[in-house]
Amino acid sequence: MTRQQILGWTQRNGLFFALAILIAIFSILSSRFLTVPNFTVILLQNAVIGLIVVPGAMLILCGLVDLSVGSVAVLSAVVFGQAMASGLGLPVSLLIGLAVGAAWGAFNGYLIAIQGFSPIIITLGGLAGARGLAEFVTQGYTTYGYGREFAFLGNGKLLGVPVPVILFAIVFLIGLHLWYRAPLGRHMIAVGGAKDTAAEIGIKVKLIPFWLYVASGLAAALGGLIIASQLDGAAVTIGTGMELEVLTAILLGGVSFTGGRGSLFGVLFGLLFVGVLSNGLVQVNVSPYFEQVAIGAALCGAAALDMFYQRLERLNVPVESEPIEAPQAGEAQ
């Protein structure tokens, strides 16, 4: 039992220690690393991905995936920019931008969760389609200059904490509640791990993923708007490669890509691990090319460790031995 407890404990906290060791190493190598301003920067750099990671991880837990987030982010930002340019005003334009994300999420959710289309194909279509649509909307003309109020979304601070970080914290706390304290967490594990059983028991195996896609689209839109605010322009480059960053944090955080297993705390550590690694490597003047290699290596390492733990878990299954009917050979002389 103790061995199993130790095993479970290291499995649950392994990434936390990897993160702690990473922080320790960078702190020794660079005096600027372990400072409040630098950690604020790390959080700010990862807040947008963090927002999208929360519903993203829930989708993966359900055995689904949303690859369209980066493109939905840019489409929302671009549509917002057009709305601003046509004089609709900030509140209406913001709502339109968010609505674009929610609508795209509902489109994904309808096709995948209700109609049963492949999540990879549909959201891969969204990855290409939404970005293409964004480029069509701009017609090569990037809107910019949305005023000081909008700039607050990406650059403002409340009590010294950047607004995007606050938004990320709110989304993450809501996510924690849903994951661990509300029935939804168990229902998602059931949907991802044993869908037929979940349906038989009466769990909403279609509606849960549908609303998660809507949430993912909404989070992507919010992320796109935050970046547009930081750039003060709705550039068509917003959100490029975002889906991979989101997936990296989730999978590094130990959520099983086949669904049914994972922790949101693990995902937070996965997100921070990537953030700390990127920031730290810059601080110690390692070539930025190496950053990608390091993240890739970390992902492969996490996958290998996961396999290792699963093997050990299987060995630890307490199956009672069946009584053996054969007589002891030693005594039969």
Binding site: A190, T197, I203
Partner: peptide
Amino acid sequence: LALVPGLDIVENIFLG
């Protein structure tokens, strides 16, 4: 059996 392997005994008993 309609049990979810990834959940514990209590979670399964109260699932849904």
